[in-house]
Design a protein around this nucleic acid. Structure first.
Lengths: 151, 151
DNA sequence: AGAAATTAGTTGACTAATCAATTAATCTGG
DNA sequence: CCAGATTAATTGATTAGTCAACTAATTTCT
């Protein structure tokens, strides 16, 4: 395997180094490396969704979601409310404390985006986004199909 | 944050789903999710490097490298030899057992590459590679500079 | 309606990865 | 030359994430 040839290596490195950046930036809020993406989803793309849906969207095990949401709840950023239509479900909502930091918190990820795409033209940024989501969907479909086939 | 807009989310998803694919593929060799990238480096890009260099290239903590190499050693895929020129260093080499599976093992990552870039033109594949490594280097330089500045 | 299957969430056990502290070897400056 | 600083590897403690087992609620099927 030649160096700087493998796509997965570039993705892995970018993930790890970005996570170091994120971890450093969010530490002042008391949010950890295992919670930020749940919090992002709830604070910036809408709350009131179930843990199951969170797990699916974040592509993590529901056990981890349960513990991450519990941690965010203990830290006062989210609360859970039983779904009146389905007693198994707990819908997760952001608190006032969370809403109060929304803009500055959002800034962390806008800044990360800018760092990642430094020196990119707007066209390159858009192209990168499209290529990344195509890869995301390709592997997603492949893995889901493999599971389905083995049943 | 709008859905399918964030680069880091696409990277995170692709990483997680790819890792699920890799974990499944390597399980028959007894190699775990925390060892494959070290083994890739040693088997496919050359062995005889120190754990310190491995840590740096893999962008992980040296503590994790120590344990991952130990596991690979216990499973018979690598061995360590003290560096004659520097008593602190241990150089890591792949075993015969590792070399014997090189081609079929390499195949896993070639296949992953194909899955990720399904439907891509050769030009798009090359473009993706370049854009990814530019992002990788951008965030890498940023984080390294931030550490240096804070000293 | 009621048994069987599925779904949502939780907990325990384990692997993955980081951070901090320690040890031993090497390097550097006076 | 040798004292102090740096480097490589290890270990312990902690957080992140997965997998399996379990409980409770819901859905499905007859």
């Amino acid at each position: 395997m030649e160096k700087r040839k493998s796509l997965i290596k570039a993705i892995l490195d970018t993930y790890r180094i970005s996570l170091a950046y994120i971890g450093e930036s969010i530490s002042k809020y008391g949010i950890g490396r295992g919670q930020w993406y749940f919090f992002n989803r709830l604070l910036l793309s809408g709350d009131g969704i179930s843990q199951e849906q969170l797990s699916e969207e974040m592509v993590v095990d529901s056990a981890h979601t349960a513990r991450a949401v519990k941690k965010l709840e203990e830290d006062g950023y989210v609360f859970r409310k039983a779904d009146p239509g389905d007693g198994r479900r707990k819908k997760v909502y952001v608190t006032e404390k969370a809403v109060a930091i929304r803009e500055e918190y959002h800034q962390i990820y806008k800044e990360l985006n800018n760092i990642l795409t430094a020196g990119f033209t707007p066209e390159e940024v858009e192209l990168t986004r499209q290529l990344l989501y195509r890869m995301r969907d390709n592997i997603d479909i492949y893995v889901k199909t493999r599971i389905k086939d083995s049943q």
